[in-house]
C-alpha cells in the first residue's frame, strides 16, 4: 500500500509554473527522497501535500484518503523555514505542538520530556527557547514534527545547518522510524545523504519530474563505467589513456568515466606501472550526485 500518492499535481503563480504535473508514490515504511536543486519546487510540493497551498490541479492521496483536516494529526511536518515560539519554554512549546496534533495535554507533556531526554535537552526543558543555541533549537524543531508519532513524516531539508554529530543522530532517528513502519518523505539537495538514506527518490527541476524510482535501479540504469581514484603525484598521463572518456580531477582525487566496453582492470594495470601513488581505487556506480548534475544540466539544455 502507498502512504502517499501524488498524481499530476500542478501549481502556478501567474505565469510561473512552480510545480508541473508532478507524480510519485511513497510505499508504506519507505524513506523517500525528493531531490532537486534550489528552487526546483520541492517546498511547494510539500506545502501542497500539507494543504497549506492548494494545488491548481492534480490529486493527492494521503494514507488512503484525499485531504481532510483530520489527516493532519497523522502527519508530521518539518518545514524548511524553521519556526519556534522564542519566548515559550521548551516543554510548553512541544506540549502545545503535540496538543495541536490532537494529543491529550498530559500525554503530550510526557512525550515532550521523553524526546527532550533523548535529544539530551532534558536539562533545558524549563528554559525559554530563545536562550538555546541554534543547534539545540533545531533539535527542538525536529521533536515538534515527530512528537505525535506520525504515520507519515515530511521533512524539508532536515540536515541543513546541522553539525556532523547531530546529522548522524538525526539520520539514526529517521532510520529507526522507518524500521517502525513509518513512511518518510525527505527533501534535500545533498545527494550523498539521499544516496545513503533513501529507498526511492524523485528528482525534480523547474517543477518537473526528471527521474523517479528505486535508488538501486536508478543507479544501475545510469551506471556508467567509472572509477574513483585517490592518488598522489603527477596524473598527466591519465588524461592520455585512450579509453578514459572523461575526467573530473580534484588534485588528489579523481573520478574517471571509461568507455562502455573498457575494462577497469586495464586501467588498474596502467596505473600500477605509472609511479603514481594509488591510495584508493574504486570501481563505482555513478554517484547520485553525478546523475543529479547530469540530469539537471540535460534538462536545462
Amino acid at each position: 500500500m502507498n502512504s502517499l500518492i501524488l498524481d499530476r499535481i500542478s501549481k502556478s503563480y501567474n505565469t510561473f509554473r512552480a510545480v508541473d504535473r508532478v507524480s510519485f508514490a511513497i510505499g508504506d515504511g519507505q524513506l523517500f527522497g525528493l531531490l532537486g536543486p534550489n528552487g526546483a519546487g520541492k517546498t511547494t510540493t510539500m506545502r501542497m501535500i500539507m494543504n497549506i497551498i492548494v494545488p491548481d490541479s492534480g490529486k493527492i492521496v494521503i494514507l488512503g484518503q484525499s485531504f481532510r483536516e483530520s489527516l493532519k494529526n497523522k502527519i508530521g511536518y518539518l518545514p524548511e523555514e524553521r519556526g519556534l515560539y522564542p519566548k515559550m519554554k521548551l516543554v510548553s512549546h512541544l506540549q502545545f505542538l503535540g496538543e495541536m496534533k490532537g494529543m491529550e495535554a498530559a500525554k503530550a507533556k510526557k512525550k515532550a520530556y521523553e524526546w527532550l531526554e533523548r535529544f539530551q535537552l532534558g536539562k533545558w526543558a524549563g528554559d525559554r527557547i530563545q536562550n538555546l543555541s541554534k543547534g539545540m533549537q533545531q533539535k527542538v524543531q525536529f521533536i515538534g514534527a515527530v512528537i505525535h508519532s506520525p504515520e507519515l513524516l515530511i521533512v524539508d531539508e532536515p540536515f541543513a545547518g546541522l553539525d556532523p554529530i547531530n546529522t548522524r543522530f538525526l539520520k539514526d532517528i529517521l532510520l529507526e522510524m522507518k524500521k517502525a513502519g513509518k513512511s518518510i518523505l525527505l527533501s534535500t539537495h545533498l545527494m550523498d545523504q539521499a544516496e545513503k538514506l533513501c529507498d526511492s527518490i524523485c528528482l525534480i527541476n523547474k517543477g518537473q519530474v526528471l527521474l523517479r524510482g528505486e535508488i538501486n535501479q536508478i543507479k544501475q540504469k545510469y551506471s556508467y563505467n567509472s572509477v574513483l581514484l585517490e592518488y598522489q603525484g603527477d596524473s598527466d598521463f591519465v588524461h592520455r589513456i585512450p579509453f578514459v572518456r572523461k575526467i573530473d580531477d580534484y588534485g588528489n582525487f579523481m573520478e574517471l568515466r571509461l568507455d562502455e566496453d573498457a575494462d577497469p582492470q586495464e586501467l588498474f594495470k596502467l596505473l600500477a606501472g605509472s609511479g603514481l601513488i594509488i591510495k584508493k581505487f574504486e570501481i563505482s556506480d555513478a554517484s547520485l550526485n553525478e546523475i543529479f548534475i547530469e540530469q539537471v544540466k540535460g534538462s536545462e539544455k
Binding site: 493532519k72 508530521g76 511536518y77 524553521r82 519556526g83 519556534l84 524543531q141 515538534g144
Partner: peptide, 16 residues
C-alpha cells in the same frame, strides 16, 4: 511575530 519566527508553517501543518 508568528510570521517572523516562521512558526506559522509549523502551525499550518496542524490546523488551518
Amino acid at each position: 511575530e508568528e510570521k517572523t519566527s516562521r512558526i506559522i508553517e509549523v502551525l499550518l501543518s496542524s490546523t488551518n
